[in-house]
Design a protein around this nucleic acid. Structure first.
Length: 485
DNA sequence: TTTTGAGTTGTTCGA
DNA sequence: GTCGAACAACTCAAA
């Protein structure tokens, strides 16, 4: 009996088989391995997935299943409370060890700690590994022993630390343990009902994304071939193709940050991409690290203003009408509307445009950043427990950054600067297709004859601006002045 | 110990 | 049309 005691690998946000330290350790133990995914939307402290994430999760699990089978393994899926499932499973299987990749949100840490303790009382060892970050949060600190609140010194410090471990290959083969009758009931992936049906709003995602490890590798290869070479120059241009599009893969661990980091370094070393471009890209991976470290050290990042003086900020409670104009991309500012519609149609949004739409919600409409964060959490394929709140707080001005409070994005200027020919706007706001470049970011200023010729009837075909930006800016500055220290 | 300078992502105003 | 200053003021490293 003890000979066949299996090792359980508990998969969570690490849905891959290469550079997967928990899986590798299990394979190297020489014991039979049980690969388990527990679909858990109910345990206290674990944030339920948003809608778009569920779509990605479904396809990631399908891919992981195939990948595990290719090395002789299997993926068993169970629905329920993680702790209950694991406890029943170890009893049923007589497992000696449970292995997993660490996660860093407040509730996740507490939850996994609880699981670890309850396994320990049964004499079962739980081993956790780092597969999610380049540097563990407790290893990066300033000279005073505190955590960093500013990115540049943070990233500088990271780069002086011992280099992250080199990525490892997938185990060549694993021997699967059987699933005893007394173990929790397994479910088929399809029975989790992760995919939208009525209506299938994810249909437009399908041609754009291939979730899973193979898809991640293909995406990385495509980026290394093209985007990374112009990354620093073009990354802010939503009308061009320079971003990596790796974020949802990283979110679900279809690829590890170490794999991305070393692939980019390699591109630099072999001269296939200029250092300047690569360094900029690596610093973006650094921002992901920074967000995770902030979340670890300031666990209430999701709900609480990082700067407490914002606790008294006079947020407006949006009417359903106002709210739907932002979410549906009907604000009357073309760059904002293009972004919100891109999000709805593709499950992602260009980084530059995320800042613009977020600034518009928070500064022009004076709506609490937490509302925006929730919307993004539900609609983004890359909805990330650290990046999402950290970035929203950054835009709102209450986050970890010396962001001057007067940094309020002007949606017209931003559009003209980063989408000068309106290529991006026209893609997602086709009703403005025939409007000339001069007015594509400010249609309400276009001469009536021009609008007529372009077939645009303001207020009918395309909305007038829901607020006057200049007035909204003054209102935001006045509100910000109220909470000045 | 204190001081100084720089810090992802910006905008407006007036010369 | 371009350019610099001003907007307010915290963190962190280096001098």
């Amino acid at each position: 009996m003890t000979d066949s005691a299996p090792v359980i690998v508990w998969f969570r946000d690490d849905l891959r088989i290469s550079d997967q330290p928990a899986l590798l350790a299990a394979a190297q133990s020489g014991k039979p391995v049980l690969c388990v995914y527990i679909f858990d939307q109910i345990s206290k402290g674990l944030r339920p997935h948003g809608g778009a994430s569920l779509w990605w999760l479904h396809h990631s699990l399908a891919a992981l299943k195939t990948d595990l089978e290719s090395i002789g393994g299997r993926l068993d899926i169970v629905e329920g409370k993680s702790a209950d499932v694991l406890n029943t499973l170890v009893e049923a299987t007589g497992a000696s060890e449970v292995m997993w990749t660490r996660r860093y949100a407040k509730g996740e840490i507490a939850h996994d700690e609880m699981v670890k303790t309850s396994l320990k009382t049964k004499g079962i060892e739980a081993k956790s590994f780092n597969g999610q970050l380049l540097f563990e949060p407790w290893t990066v600190q300033s000279k005073t022993g505190d955590f960093y609140r500013v990115f540049t010194p943070f990233w500088k410090c990271c780069l002086t630390l011992p280099a992250p471990a080199l990525p490892t290959k997938a185990p060549k083969s694993i021997s699967s343990a059987s699933w005893p009758r007394s173990a929790p009931a397994r479910v088929k992936l399809a029975d989790l009902n992760l995919l939208p049906t009525k209506p299938n709003w994810a249909k437009s995602f399908e041609p754009l994304w291939t979730p899973g490890e193979q898809g991640a590798k293909a995406q990385l290869a495509a980026f290394l071939k093209k985007g990374i070479k112009i990354y620093s120059d073009d990354r802010n241009r939503p009308d061009r193709e320079a971003t990596s599009k790796l974020s949802p893969f990283l979110r679900f661990g279809n690829i590890s940050p170490r794999q991305v980091y070393y692939a980019a370094r390699h591109a630099d070393e072999t001269g296939s991409a200029p250092s300047k471009q690569v360094e900029k890209f690596l610093s973006e991976i650094g921002w992901r690290e920074f967000a995770y470290h902030l979340l670890f050290h300031a666990p209430d990042l999701l709900n609480q203003n990082f700067q407490p003086r914002f606790d008294h900020f006079p947020w407006h409670k949006p009417s359903p009408k106002i709210w739907s104009r932002w979410t549906k991309g009907q604000t009357g500012y073309p760059i904002v509307d293009a972004g919100m519609r891109e999000l709805w149609q593709t499950g992602t949004m260009h980084n530059r445009v995320r800042m613009i739409v977020a600034s518009f919600l928070v500064k022009d409409l004076l709506i609490d950043w937490r509302k925006g964060e929730e919307w993004f959490w539900d609609t983004l394929l890359d909805a990330d427990p650290a990046n999402n709140p950290a970035s929203w707080q950054w835009v709102a001005g209450c986050g970890a950054d010396a962001a001057p409070y007067f940094r309020i994005f002007n949606p017209i200027l931003q559009g003209e600067k980063f989408d000068p020919e309106g290529v991006y706007v026209r893609r997602f706001v086709p009703e403005l297709d025939n409007l000339s470049n001069d007015y594509i970011h400010r249609p309400w200023e276009a001469p009536p004859a021009l609008l007529l010729a372009a077939g645009v009837k303001l207020g009918t075909d395309y909305p007038r601006p829901m607020v006057d930006h200049s007035e909204a800016r003054d209102a935001a500055l006045a509100a910000l002045a109220e909470i000045k220290v």
